[in-house]
């Protein structure tokens, strides 16, 4: 850090510390954090000690609670408890990887468009609009089938279809911030374009981007679940979406094999969304009056 920031008065708490303080007092957000951390713990435990979710262990469609199976068994007699433990890992991994990719593309494109303006902005926004015209899930399905499903292709496909919103948001922030005085000041002391974009503007654009990134993770998880539900996930990896898809022919005979994995997906995305809302409130205290 520069000399300037080190000599800044100590009494003012940093914006990040202030946001954290508000976040901690926000009960739904803390509930979301707790749920998310528990789900993460279950998923990590499951992928280490969960066992083989494809193994047939008991009579098919054993109701939950019977014969020692807390969640029952599915249409083939596979333990749902094992599936639930193991099946979260691909969902969360793909969700996280896809979100990172989509944020990377979105922020880069949005920042370049917002900062340079003019024909660069025009061209990049046309490309963004083009991607918004393609129905995202359909496009992701096409990508996954053309390039054969694996965790890498699925994450890439989801990342590639999700970035336009991040790009638009980043562009709007950059357009707003590039006119501010501290950006002019940075330019006056000789900072180059790259430095201004990534070291001056981006840090100041971060709060809304962090909120949107959190929500992007949730959407990416739903995407992965949807693809796996359709049978387009990695066939060798058990996932929550795949469990729902595999058992959906039998919903009229057994409700539990589809209900529990869906609840797991819902709880994960729900917790992410609570965290996102909490971050939003923490970064924009003014909005809370609304």
């Amino acid at each position: 850090m520069s000399e300037l920031s080190r000599s800044a008065p100590e009494r003012a708490a940093s914006p990040a510390a202030e946001a954290w303080r508000m976040f901690r007092r926000n009960r739904p957000a803390m509930l979301g954090t707790a749920i998310f951390l528990s789900m993460l713990g279950v998923v990590i435990y499951g992928s280490l000690f969960g066992g083989d979710p494809f193994e047939i262990v008991w009579a098919p469609q054993t109701p939950p609670g019977e014969d020692g199976f807390v969640f029952g068994t599915d249409y083939l007699g596979r333990s749902l408890a094992t599936g639930l433990l193991v099946g979260g890992a691909p969902t969360m991994a793909v969700g996280a990887a896809a979100a990172v990719l989509s944020i990377f593309i979105g922020v880069t494109i949005g920042a370049l468009a917002g900062y340079y303006g003019g024909w660069v902005d025009n061209l990049l926004m046309r490309i963004t609009e083009f991607f918004q015209v393609l129905p995202a899930l359909l496009f992701a399905m096409v990508l996954v089938t053309l390039f054969s499903p694996s965790l890498v292709t699925i994450s890439t496909a989801i990342g590639v279809v999700m970035w336009p919103q991040t790009a638009r948001l980043t562009r709007a922030e950059f357009l707003k911030i590039r006119e501010l005085e501290y950006v002019t000041a940075a330019r006056a002391i000789g900072a180059g374009n790259g430095r201004i974009m990534w070291r001056v503007i981006l840090p100041n654009a971060l709060p809304p981007l962090i909120v949107s990134a959190t929500l992007t993770v949730g959407v990416a998880i739903l995407f992965e679940a949807g693809l796996s539900f359709l049978g387009l996930g990695d066939p060798n990896t058990m996932s929550w979406g795949m469990m729902i898809g595999a058992n959906r022919e039998y919903i009229l005979d057994a409700w539990w094999p589809v209900t529990f994995p869906g609840l797991a997906i819902f709880l994960t995305v729900f917790s992410v969304s609570l965290i996102g809302d909490g971050l939003n409130d923490a970064f924009n205290p003014k909005l809370r009056e609304r």
């Binding site: 729902i244 919903i251 409700w255 997906i265």
Partner: peptide, 21 residues
Amino acid sequence: TLGYALPVFWTGIMLIIVFAS
């Protein structure tokens, strides 16, 4: 918050179980 977090295909299956079965 619920609407954002519900997997649409799962919501459909739940509605089938409740309102069709």
